[in-house]
Design a protein around this nucleic acid. Structure first.
Lengths: 211, 211
DNA sequence: GCCATTGTGGCAGATACTGTCATATTGACA
DNA sequence: TGTCAATATGACAGTATCTGCCACAATGGC
């Protein structure tokens, strides 16, 4: 259990040279291996050595990419960081707090509004796994906690240190986060159950209910 | 990482014979040892063996009481389960969902309304530790997740399986939980900072903001 | 006072994770 | 193009977490 400090920005300097591309590729291969093995067996029955072997790297290298096997299966949720970092400049420091923060977190659902998009399909696959695996749910809320703390820092800086009540900022963020997660879960559940699902409608309903 | 199934009731058959009393005592001794060692050094620098030795039990026995060293420091939050179980019968299935769930979760703050009570002092001690230790925050959200899932099951059963929209139930619970946690954190922060703090007022303000 | 139940400790073992070093690969720059 | 600093990888050792298993002790009902 380490405490990485994943700053709130779009990963690294971006699409750099071959080095960085290789790195992203290796990362993706590890994730794919983890998802497949977790789906076949279970998280508990899958060892880090298994995942590393399947991805063609050593166990030592695995831990240079992910802090735990659970995290290896949840890179989707790290993309949220990029979305939030992108949206941060659009936050109006003078606007209504709840509204602004909800707008920021709304960016997280946008990639999945089209049920047939590759992003949506991948999210659905991960969601299915998460629903079956308490260990993955635990890893997810942990990631969520860290992200929330980062967003709180970033927003406090942007809104001005003294301009915002800590309690209200914290609540606005946590509620926005909960609304997004509940919406995505509901959406994934409905799709898994075979029925139709409109993420935009679900998210709108969730926002309204939480108001 | 195990998946205990802590049912939502006030621990065991209650104040049974000497056996159960001894068990609670041992449990408390482990917790005290963990809190002290964590406060002296850090969570990372403290091993399970250290805690077990300080509590006068073997490491093997430690794991019969707690699933991890982090959990050993957070028994306070397990008391929340008892509070929720107590309040469940008072939930009105016909009432407004948000209001009923908020009322249920409001029970969790009651033991700490008096800043000078032993319960409040103990909570304060744990809060201080949690603020300093990311590992404990992670363990806390994990416990919170499990509790939330249990409450959702229990409430769904009480409200009638078809009477409640899963999305709304989920949101009502998560928001109520977030409001309570943010309030307790704010309260603890203010007290730690040396200033006065009125938990009832904070909680009221949080409820209003989240409405 | 007997016996089934339950708690405890010790041990072995699997797995998770980290520090360290040697080696190889990359990319900037002369 | 050749050299060098930076960086990625693998191998190894070592520590810590957590579990299964077994023997033994303590408890509490009868």
């Amino acid at each position: 259990m380490s405490a990485r400090t994943a700053e709130l920005r779009a990963t690294r300097p971006a699409g750099q040279g071959l080095r960085e591309r290789r790195r992203q590729q290796t990362r993706a291969e590890i994730t794919d291996a983890a998802l497949e093995l977790f789906a076949q067996g279970s998280v508990a029955a899958t060892t880090v050595d298994d995942i590393a072997s399947a991805a063609g790297v050593s166990a030592r290298t695995f831990f240079r990419y992910f802090a735990s096997k659970e995290e290896a299966a949840l890179p989707v949720h790290q993309e949220f960081n990029a979305a939030l970092a992108d949206g941060l400049p659009a936050v109006d420091p003078g606007g209504d707090l709840r509204r602004e923060v909800n707008g920021l977190y709304g960016l997280m659902v946008r990639p999945y509004l089209d049920n047939d998009s590759p992003a949506a399909q991948r999210m659905l696959q991960v969601s299915r796994l998460i629903r079956k695996e308490p260990a993955l749910r635990a890893a997810m809320v942990r990631q969520n906690l860290e992200r929330t703390e980062e967003v709180q820092q970033a927003l406090a800086a942007r809104l001005g240190p003294e301009r915002t009540d800590p309690l209200e900022l914290r609540l606005a963020i946590d509620i926005a986060s909960v609304v997004v997660r509940a919406s995505l879960d509901t959406w994934a559940s409905q799709l898994e159950a075979g029925g139709p699902a409109d993420l935009a409608a679900i998210y709108g309903r969730a926002l309204e209910f939480a108001k």
